[in-house]
Structures are given as structure tokens and as C-alpha cells.
């Protein structure tokens, strides 16, 4: 009960303090808000980029064309090897006749052209789906080493570039978020430092009458928490309305049909949860730093 009373008192005092030092609180809240808006943008960006990369990964395949004179034994050999290759997720054999039928379905002129040949000029092939697109070229290189493999193609160059750009975007946004979080923690820490200074007589009396260190420190930590949570309100509203608006306006596609946006729900709610957690944690960490540094008890 006693601990509960101290806790209630700490929460009450921290609310009082937020309003008592209103201008300082507003400065901290504004800073947290700006940071969290940027954090939200980074989260939306990096998650969407991750999603697009994932989609690309699923769609990217290596098409292995086998020589015309390939034997059934050789096909079995490569199939067995594919089963044990680390980066191979799945594979599918596609005979030259299947190719021909598919091409005929797609285009009539191709049907006529293919009919000119007495023998099907296409090659038997294997379509390989990989686990990690980053090792796509390595896997293709391994498959090219077989004598009976004519070629292994996957759109060299373009894939590496796209993945490289996406990786850079993810890393860049992550680095910015970390830097902003640190700056906010520092600013909240400064606010709490000034609060501690403005309440030094109160703290001194608390120490004199025998308040435990926890009872003295707790209101300041709560104050940081409150500042963090208040600072996350606007970013949350902007995230919900902003992202839903963007999604509705673009119809879920950016530039091309390949780049799709993640559906707003429950994604936006997850981002909002992240914002509250980051806001409150940063607030508490900032105030904890100030309490440790300026409240030597």
C-alpha cells in the first residue's frame, strides 16, 4: 500500500511538474513530436522498402537452360544437386514443349514462327527460386559450371542495383532514426535537468525528511515518460490519417505496379505502437540520465 501511495504521489507530482514548467515541457514535447514524425516516416519507408524487396525476392528466379543433347541422367544429376544447394528454395522443370505451348498461348505470331521449325528449337529448362537474392549471382554461377547447362539467366546488373539501393535506404533511415532518438533523449534530459533545478528546495526537503531515493527520483522519470507520450500524440494522428490518405490516393502503388504499398491496417497501428513505445522510452531514458547526473543521491 505504501509503495502504491508513493507511486500515486509520483504520478501526481509529475503531471503537476509538466504543467508548472509549461514552456519547458512544450519545448520537449515539440522536439519529441518532430523526432517521432521523422521516425514514423522512416518506419513507413523502411518497412515498405523491406516489403518490396521481399516481393522482388519471391519473383526473382534463375532460368537454367539445358543443352539440346542433355540426357535424363544429367537432368537427374542437376536435380539432386539442386535439392542440396544452400540458397535454393525450390525449382521447377520446364520442358521445351511446355515453353512452346506457353509461347503459343501468349502470341499468335510466335505460334506461326515456331511451326516453321520441324523440331522444337527451344531448350529444356529449370526455373530456380532462391532463398536470398543477394546470393543470386553466386548460385547462377554454380549452375553455369555444369557442362550440359547452356546458360543461367536472372537479369544481371539490374537486380543487384535495385537491392543495393533498397539496402542503402533501409540503412540510411535506420541511422537517421537512431541519431534523432539520441538528440531527443538529450533534449528531454535537459528539460528534466531544469525541472530538477527549479525543484531543488523540494528535493532537499524530501531528502531531509527521509524520502527514499526511489521516491525522489520516480516523479522525474514519470515526467519524462509523460513528455514522451504527449510528444507522440501528433505523430500518431499524422501516421494514421497521413498513411491512409497516401494509400487511398495512390491506390497502393508507387510509380509502377511493381512497387506496392503495405496495406494501412494493421500496419499503421503497429507504427503507432512503435511511436508510443519509442516516445515514452526516450522520455524515461532522458530523464533517467538527468536524474543520475544532476541528482546525486
Amino acid at each position: 500500500m505504501k509503495a502504491l501511495r508513493i507511486l500515486t504521489r509520483s504520478i501526481r507530482d509529475s503531471f503537476k511538474s509538466v504543467f508548472r514548467n509549461f514552456s519547458l515541457s512544450i519545448a520537449s514535447i515539440a522536439c519529441t513530436t518532430i523526432t517521432l514524425i521523422l521516425v514514423a516516416i522512416s518506419l513507413f519507408l523502411s518497412y515498405n522498402v523491406q516489403q518490396v524487396t521481399k516481393d522482388l525476392e519471391h519473383e526473382l528466379t534463375i532460368v537454367v537452360y539445358l543443352n539440346k543433347d542433355v540426357t535424363d541422367e544429367q537432368k537427374t544429376e542437376i536435380e539432386n544437386d539442386l535439392k542440396t544447394m544452400e540458397n535454393v528454395d525450390s525449382y521447377e522443370l520446364k520442358s521445351k514443349d511446355e515453353w512452346k505451348a506457353e509461347m503459343k498461348d501468349e502470341d499468335e505470331s510466335l505460334e506461326n514462327a515456331l511451326d516453321i521449325f520441324e523440331e522444337n528449337p527451344l531448350l529444356d529448362s529449370i526455373i530456380v527460386t532462391v532463398k536470398d537474392v543477394k546470393d543470386l549471382s553466386e548460385t547462377a554461377e554454380k549452375l553455369r559450371k555444369y557442362d550440359f547447362v547452356n546458360s543461367a539467366e536472372y537479369g544481371e546488373g539490374m537486380v543487384e542495383n535495385v537491392i543495393g539501393i533498397f539496402d542503402a535506404i533501409s540503412f540510411g533511415t535506420f541511422a537517421i532514426v537512431i541519431a534523432l532518438v539520441l538528440v531527443t533523449a538529450f533534449l528531454i534530459s535537459n528539460t528534466i535537468k531544469l525541472t530538477i533545478f527549479s525543484r531543488r528546495t523540494e528535493i532537499e526537503i524530501m531528502r531531509l525528511v527521509g524520502a527514499s531515493n526511489t521516491a525522489i527520483k520516480l516523479p522525474f522519470v514519470f515526467e519524462g515518460f509523460i513528455l514522451g507520450v504527449l510528444g507522440s500524440i501528433l505523430p500518431i494522428l499524422l501516421s494514421i490519417y497521413g498513411y491512409v490518405f497516401l494509400y487511398n490516393q495512390t491506390g497502393g502503388y508507387v510509380f509502377t505496379q511493381i512497387i506496392t504499398l503495405v496495406k494501412p491496417f494493421p500496419f499503421v497501428l503497429f507504427v503507432c505502437l512503435c511511436l508510443v513505445v519509442i516516445g515514452s522510452l526516450v522520455g524515461m531514458l532522458g530523464s533517467w540520465r538527468a536524474v543520475r547526473k544532476y541528482l546525486k543521491i
Partner: peptide, 10 residues
């Protein structure tokens, strides 16, 4: 009262 509130008395 501040002295006693700080100590968590009811």
C-alpha cells in the same frame, strides 16, 4: 504534511 506524504503515509 509534505514530510509525511513523501514518506507514503496514508
Amino acid at each position: 504534511a509534505f514530510a509525511l506524504e513523501t514518506l507514503g503515509l496514508p
